[in-house]
């Protein structure tokens, strides 16, 4: 039981971080960013290059992942999403654009970083072993703590800073925020950059545990969408709960149902379908959007 709980907390914290950026962008711009997984992968590769290849300290490499993705996100919003949103009222325009960006980034990743799985040296050696009832490598514990701290810092930023208040106002009512003097264009760009930066941060953190490869982007996006749908699209706390719930469902399913083969995800998807049929807006979303 201890192992299941520990696995659940670890998986839940990393999933919550992945979902946060996606739901932030959705909340601000009503854009389903299909390229979120690819941004996560780029974050992993940037940390891999700085820390794994060039020997730069891990913290600095992680910072470079955040900066790279923040700039990339800002550029994507400024030159791609903003013009499309202004020029088209159809939601599928931004969806198609996001899908196109995902394919484009996949191609760029292949050209720049290659097709191989990449990994970096462990940031902390050793394994915590409590009487073989709870086994957890120290690097996972550290990453879990860092992920939780990052989530807390993000919530703090959203709650207690001027930027956070402006972003929340934008998410609640774009027109009202504009009438109150919020520079919508500027804060949309900041919000998108922040969402992309979160993807880069979690990619950089997790490359130390899971490594990174070209093909991780699509599945990561799908998992992130699941978490966002569970928690409620566009709700920050919903994304966190969605990540924690998915993490625990995985940990419990893998521990208790292994003898029946890989039915954990089958059950998760069935549960999700039933849940969405009963509560389509997710746990914390509003029925009216």
């Amino acid at each position: 039981m201890e192992q299941i709980l520990a696995n659940g907390v670890y998986l839940g914290s990393q999933y919550a971080m992945i979902a946060l950026g996606l739901t932030l962008i959705f909340a601000l711009m009503n854009v389903l960013n299909f390229a979120h997984g690819q941004m996560y992968v780029i974050g992993g590769f940037v940390t891999y290059t700085f820390y794994g290849q060039w020997g730069v300290p891990f913290v600095l490499a992680l910072f470079m992942s955040c900066v790279t993705l923040a700039i990339l996100g800002a550029l994507i919003e400024r030159f791609l999403f903003a013009p499309v949103i202004k020029g088209s009222s159809r939601e599928e325009s931004t969806m198609l654009l996001a899908a196109g960006i995902a394919f484009f980034l996949d191609a760029v990743i292949l050209l720049v970083f290659g097709e191989k799985q990449r990994g970096v040296p462990k940031i902390v050696d050793g394994v915590f072993n409590y009487d073989f009832r709870l086994i957890m490598p120290y690097d996972r514990i550290l990453i879990c703590v860092l992920a939780i701290l990052s989530i807390v810092a993000f919530i703090g930023l959203m709650q207690y800073t001027k930027t956070g208040r402006a972003l929340r106002a934008l998410a609640q009512d774009r027109t009202a925020a504009q009438l109150m003097g919020v520079n919508v264009d500027r804060y949309s760009m900041i919000g998108f950059a922040l969402g992309a930066m979160l993807a880069g941060l979690v990619g950089g953190l997790l490359v130390t545990i899971t490594g990174v490869n070209l093909g991780m982007g699509g599945p990561t996006s799908i998992k992130a969408f699941m978490m966002v749908m569970i928690g409620g699209a566009g709700v920050i706390s919903g994304a966190i709960w969605g990540g924690i719930i998915l993490g625990f469902m995985e940990a419990i399913g893998l521990a208790l149902l292994y003898q029946y083969g890989d039915i954990t995800y089958l059950l998760i998807f069935v549960s999700l379908m039933i849940f969405l049929a009963i509560r389509p807006q997710g746990l914390m979303g509003k029925p009216w959007g």
Binding site: N7, L11, I135, T210, L254, Y258, Q259
Partner: peptide, 19 residues
């Protein structure tokens, strides 16, 4: 021989624990 994993799994600790 029953334990399997999703091809996009990134964390194998929970998967391998029963094995």
């Amino acid at each position: 021989a029953n334990v399997t994993y999703q091809v996009d799994t990134t964390d194998f600790t929970p998967v391998l624990t029963p094995v």
